[in-house]
C-alpha cells in the first residue's frame, strides 16, 4: 500500500513525512520525524506518556491518526527549550525532584504546559485535574503538582518556598 504524505508544523518547523495510512502520530513522530520526546507507554490512552499539544490543546499522540495531523501545529517536549536554558516547567521539575525514572515526565510537562498556557495561576486542584490523565509510577504525584505550581509562580515572578 502506498504511503501517504503528511505535512505539519513541529515545534515551529515545517515538517513533512510519509506514513502508512493507519499509523498513529506517536510512531510517526518518533520513527519518521525523528522526535523521540513523546514516549510510548501503553498505546491505548491510559498512561499519558505520549501527550503532545495539537493546536495548543493536549492530545494523546498514540490515539491520533498520523494522517489526521495534516496542517496541524504540533508541540512536543522536544521543543520546550529551544536554547540552552530550560523551560520554567523543566527547571521546576528538575529542582523539585519531580522526575525519578522520567518516563512519564514528557507527557506530564506537555499536560502542564497546556494548563499554564490557558490558566497561568492555577489552583492545586486545577493542576491535579490537568494531569489526571497522566500516570506516574515513581513520584506519588505530589512533587509533580508542586513543580507545576512552582513553575507557574516563577513565570509570574512570584516567590515560592
Amino acid at each position: 500500500m502506498p504511503k501517504t504524505p503528511v505535512t505539519f508544523t513541529l515545534n515551529g518547523a515545517e515538517t513533512g513525512i510519509f506514513v502508512d495510512p493507519g499509523l498513529n502520530l506517536l510512531e510517526a513522530l518518533r520513527r519518521e520525524a525523528g522526535d523521540l520526546s513523546p514516549k510510548f507507554g501503553c498505546g491505548q490512552g491510559t498512561c499519558g506518556a505520549c501527550t503532545i499539544l495539537i493546536n495548543g490543546e493536549p492530545h494523546l499522540s498514540c490515539l491520533t491518526l498520523a494522517v489526521a495531523a495534516q496542517d496541524a501545529d504540533i508541540s512536543t517536549t522536544g521543543g520546550l527549550a529551544p536554547g540552552a536554558d530550560l523551560h520554567p516547567l523543566q527547571q521546576a521539575f528538575a529542582d523539585g525532584f519531580a522526575a525519578q525514572c522520567g518516563f512519564c515526565t514528557s507527557g506530564m510537562l506537555m499536560a502542564a504546559k497546556a494548563l499554564l498556557d490557558r490558566n497561568p495561576r492555577p489552583t492545586r486542584d486545577e493542576v491535579v485535574e490537568a494531569i489526571s490523565g497522566n500516570l506516574c509510577r515513581c513520584t506519588g504525584y505530589d512533587p509533580i503538582v508542586d513543580a507545576i505550581l512552582d513553575a507557574a509562580a516563577r513565570v509570574q515572578g512570584r516567590v515560592t518556598a
Partner: peptide, 21 residues
C-alpha cells in the same frame, strides 16, 4: 476522536480494515 477506535488500530488492525475520516 479515535480514543477507542485507535486502540484497535494499534493492537488488532485486522479488525479495522477501513477507517472513514
Amino acid at each position: 476522536g479515535g480514543t477507542l477506535l485507535m486502540r484497535q488500530v494499534n493492537y488488532t488492525p485486522h479488525q479495522v480494515p477501513n477507517i472513514l475520516r
